[in-house]
Simulated assay, not measured.
Amino acid sequence: METDHYFYVLLCKDDTFYGGYTTDPKRRLKEHNSGTGAKYTRLPSRLPAEMIHVEKFNSRSEATKAEYAFKKLTRKHKIAYLKEREAKWCQ
């Protein structure tokens, strides 16, 4: 069985973005919102977080490259990236 690989973006309560990698977006969002996700999203000021964008890739390598590239962008460019891909938050 092949595993799906995802790059996702969260919109945190403090209006910041968090990009990550997972094989199960629903489970990962629950982890973030329960405080057991990434260190970044554990702060109460960032929760709850909403998953506003998910991209599916064929390999972990492709998904983590997308995550890395997103994290390097400025906020202005992250917003443009999300708008281009019609992220839930932008609609």
Results as ranks from 00 to 15, higher is better:
38 A>R: 10
47 L>E: 01
7 F>P: 04
33 N>R: 04
21 Y>N: 07
15 D>N: 15
61 S>L: 11
80 A>N: 10
9 V>P: 03
28 R>F: 00
6 Y>N: 00
5 H>D: 02
75 R>I: 09
2 E>A: 14
32 H>E: 08
80 A>W: 05
55 E>D: 11
40 Y>K: 08
15 D>K: 13
77 H>R: 15
50 E>A: 11
14 D>H: 05
79 I>N: 03
62 E>V: 00
34 S>T: 12
40 Y>L: 11
38 A>G: 07
69 A>H: 08
64 T>A: 04
38 A>W: 06
18 Y>V: 02
57 F>E: 05
89 W>Q: 11
17 F>A: 03
58 N>D: 14
14 D>S: 04
59 S>C: 03
47 L>W: 03
9 V>C: 10
3 T>E: 12
77 H>P: 02
44 P>L: 02
5 H>N: 09
81 Y>F: 15
40 Y>F: 15
46 R>D: 01
3 T>D: 12
61 S>E: 15
59 S>Q: 04
66 A>G: 04
56 K>L: 06
15 D>C: 09
2 E>Y: 13
23 T>V: 11
77 H>L: 12
23 T>N: 14
67 E>A: 04
85 R>K: 15
5 H>K: 04
24 D>V: 05
29 L>C: 02
68 Y>S: 15
37 G>E: 00
49 A>F: 00
53 H>C: 09
63 A>F: 02
33 N>K: 06
41 T>H: 00
78 K>H: 04
59 S>K: 03
41 T>M: 02
38 A>F: 09
36 T>H: 06
48 P>W: 04
23 T>Q: 15
60 R>V: 08
79 I>M: 07
31 E>L: 12
1 M>S: 14
39 K>E: 13
31 E>F: 07
31 E>R: 11
32 H>D: 05
51 M>E: 07
17 F>C: 02
90 C>D: 07
28 R>H: 06
49 A>T: 01
77 H>T: 12
21 Y>E: 05
